[in-house]
Design a binder for these strands. Structure first.
Lengths: 329, 329
DNA sequence: CTGAAAGCGCTAACAC
DNA sequence: GTGTTAGCGCTTTCAG
């Protein structure tokens, strides 16, 4: 089926293509009668404007590039949902890019993102380096970074302050006299791990104590579970903080298999909440990240940047919420 | 920063834009010396070809549209991963569209998909109607449908035969003398539910029996869990088959809260396996769908269609695999 | 209110 | 080998 162009419509409606263009774009200077003729022609021919050609002519594509870590959909899913919903409202398309570890890949993304001439990019990854960011910034394309607090000329960010969250959590437990607190490394999320660690350090320091409950998982270990199963043979904690749901489950299983009762012997807090946390037994206490909002706000921010409405605040901090379930008391 | 065009590069390298174009596209007729000059200019200016303009000129975009049900990332995640990996290899971009219930939305997707002039579309949803499919087919754009067995002139499909899977499962249990088998409706996946149901019916029929263990969830119930909690007060089964991991967990929780032991009193099989099935306790027996492959194969099929290599088989059936865990014996 | 014409950046014949 | 030129489909001044 031959694609019907604006020209075909013009001929059918007996007007010039300029007029058709006006009708398409809702220009109000067209006489109602002509508009109707054009509308009919469009319908009859089943004409759909070629977004590519529009993109070329307008120098914008109404699509934005989304960059996420590969294979991360379980925890980025909600973010993407939020993003898509807002994108849909504003009529933006999303081009999906995943990023693998290793710098070279980042360059590839920058390459693709630039070539595809998206109007903007939303990036969610710990692994992107400052250089790549600078590169992107050079191209002067609006960027929203999710998860890290950064900003620059054309870069905004939306994040949740976990350092603060953990700070408050630790402070509270310290006040209750619970001092043997451990934080489990999440090798897949360096930055968040650092945030957690720093929050704990600060909380302990403020009470005149020193935090040294950071559990790092040796490189050679294939999974948190395998590691923890051995770890718990000799180690105990009163409270353990982990990053993702899968780590939480791994912790529960490993602890249980070593005779550690949760929450009686050890309490557990998962930082990133997902629906699975409340599906498993015991239900896992967690910080609810407003994932959906994280995506929605990012996209909203993006639209603002694109319309160069003044973006008053380039760094948006969203609030977390602690949901106590069965792994704490 | 002003975008640098092919024209700037041409001027810089002192050649015509045609030559630059040739270099970009790796045409081998360019003299090495000129090529080098052009390459230098490209590097110096930081030139990146405008994919939009290329798209216009070539009448193709090297991007394909992916259509999935909204908020489905937990179970489509792996599919998307497979898809993206193959897409990356072949240099295709992915535009992401989500589809909500309700026909009108489908038209919107068709609209967007056509307007964005993707080279092809990969669709994963139960909800798309035959009409919309026909519409898409009219536009003569290559389509790969994931999950359902359909094909047409420009439509291929990749699926897993669950009807057969359930048929075999039921047959096996019937042989063992277990006849009280139930299948739980998945309101979010009509078609799969039907497949399951049909498989069971066929299995029973082949043994000269009748299947009537279909559990449909009343419309007014907000979740499987809430429904099952009440359901299990009066009902028992020897084997229950559910579609998704979340339903499996709901079933376990609801059953347990009604004093039903799994697998002792009731065995449980989840149709769509995810990593969560092996993280929870008891670990859930499930059919492993080759999700990643589903995505990868689909994308591979798409590339074939796009290069109009003869696609010998328009309907690709992938094999499932039964993974027995702790909810069956 | 509508039409003519000049691009947007690139590719692909077709010349030289 | 390389340059010239005519589109790809649409938007947008600028005239009328």
């Amino acid at each position: 089926m031959k694609r019907v162009t604006i020209y075909d419509v013009a001929k059918e409606a007996n007007v010039s293509l300029a007029t058709v263009s006006r009708v398409i774009n809702g220009s109000d200077v067209v006489k109602l009668q002509t508009k109707q003729r054009v509308d009919e022609a469009i319908k009859k021919l089943g004409y759909k404007p070629n977004a590519i050609a529009q993109g070329l002519a307008l120098q914008k594509t109404t699509t934005i590039g989304l960059v996420i870590p590969e294979a991360s959909f379980t925890y980025t899913g909600m973010i993407i949902n939020g993003l898509l919903d807002v994108a849909k409202i504003y009529g933006y398309n999303i081009i999906l890019h995943t990023i693998t570890e290793g710098i070279s890949d980042v360059d590839m993304i920058v390459d693709v993102v630039i070539k595809s001439r998206v109007d903007g990019a939303i990036i969610y990854t710990d692994k992107i380096t400052e250089e790549s960011m600078a590169m992107l910034n050079d191209y002067n394309i609006p960027i929203v970074v999710i998860g890290n607090r950064v900003s620059a000329q054309s870069i905004c960010s939306v994040y949740v302050d976990f350092e603060k969250a953990i700070y408050e959590l630790c402070s509270e437990y310290l006040d209750k006299g619970i001092e043997d607190i451990a934080i489990l490394e999440d090798r897949k999320n360096e930055n968040s791990t650092n945030d957690l660690h720093n929050g704990a350090i600060r909380a302990f320091k403020d009470k005149g104590k020193e935090f040294n409950g950071f559990i790092s998982i040796p490189k050679e270990e294939r999974s948190s579970y395998r590691f923890l199963k051995k770890y718990f043979v000799e180690h105990r904690h009163q409270l353990i903080v982990v990053n993702r749901d899968s780590q939480a489950m791994a912790t529960i299983n490993a602890a249980r298999e070593n005779g550690i009762l949760i929450p009686e012997d050890m309490q557990l807090v998962c930082v990133i909440d997902t629906k699975y946390n409340s599906m498993v037994r015991p239900q896992i206490s967690a910080f609810t990240i407003p994932s959906y909002d994280l995506g929605a706000v990012s996209m909203r921010l993006m639209t603002k940047m694109l319309q160069s409405e003044g973006v008053e605040d380039k760094e948006k901090c969203l609030n977390y919420l602690f949901t106590a379930r069965e792994t704490t008391y």
